[in-house]
């Protein structure tokens, strides 16, 4: 019991020490995130895809001479200055360039499939797994009722021998 307490207390000490190490930096940066220069620009441009072929969002495209993201970020700044919301700015660009400018599918119509299918597949997969496990569970080999446990089998089942050998090898 004492050993367990020592283990638990040393582990808790380890965790506390680890987070004493990390948390000031994280909380410091966490507060900074909200105080960062132009955070709204990042929030808006994260929702838009650069069309220069880099495949990144407008926030992340760092091509110095990019003809798409560089002017767009300036334009976003201007619109933020005019008091437009994120949704309004994104709607403006959607109207201008079409859906492909959005960095994620919308949550309407056919696009809903994009969001839901991974979870539907997971639920279906999980259901199939539970069904299979249930079948394995119910088909577990049991001793036949008319067998005589006192009588040893005439020959040792080769499959059982193989399993036994394998287990012994693993334990050796």
């Amino acid at each position: 019991m004492r050993a367990k307490l020592t283990l638990a207390s040393s582990l808790v000490f380890f965790v506390v020490a680890l987070f004493a190490f990390f948390s000031p930096e994280l909380s410091n940066v966490s507060r900074e995130t909200f105080a960062a220069e132009n955070p709204t620009n990042s929030q808006v441009s994260e929702g838009l895809t650069c069309q220069c072929g880099c495949g990144l969002t407008v926030a992340n495209c760092n091509m110095p001479t990019c003809g798409f993201s560089v002017p767009m970020r300036r334009e976003i700044d201007r619109m933020i200055g005019e008091g437009k919301t994120r949704a309004q700015i994104i709607a403006f660009y959607r109207q201008q360039y079409g859906e492909k400018v959005l960095s994620a599918p919308t949550t309407e119509g056919f696009n809903l499939l994009a969001w839901t299918m991974p979870f539907i597949a997971l639920v279906l997969g999980g259901g199939a797994m539970v069904l299979a496990v249930g079948r394995w569970h119910s088909h577990q080999p049991s001793a036949p009722s008319d067998s005589n446990p006192a009588t040893p089998p005439a020959t040792f089942d080769p499959e059982l021998r193989r399993k036994l050998e394998k287990e012994l090898e693993e334990r050796r």
């Binding site: 929702g47 895809t49 079409g98 859906e99 994620a104 599918p105």
Partner: peptide, 15 residues
């Protein structure tokens, strides 16, 4: 999306 709706879309980091 392009095959079904004929609309090009992007699926990026937020998704």
């Amino acid at each position: 999306s392009e095959a079904v709706r004929g609309v090009k879309i992007t699926v990026g980091p937020p998704f």
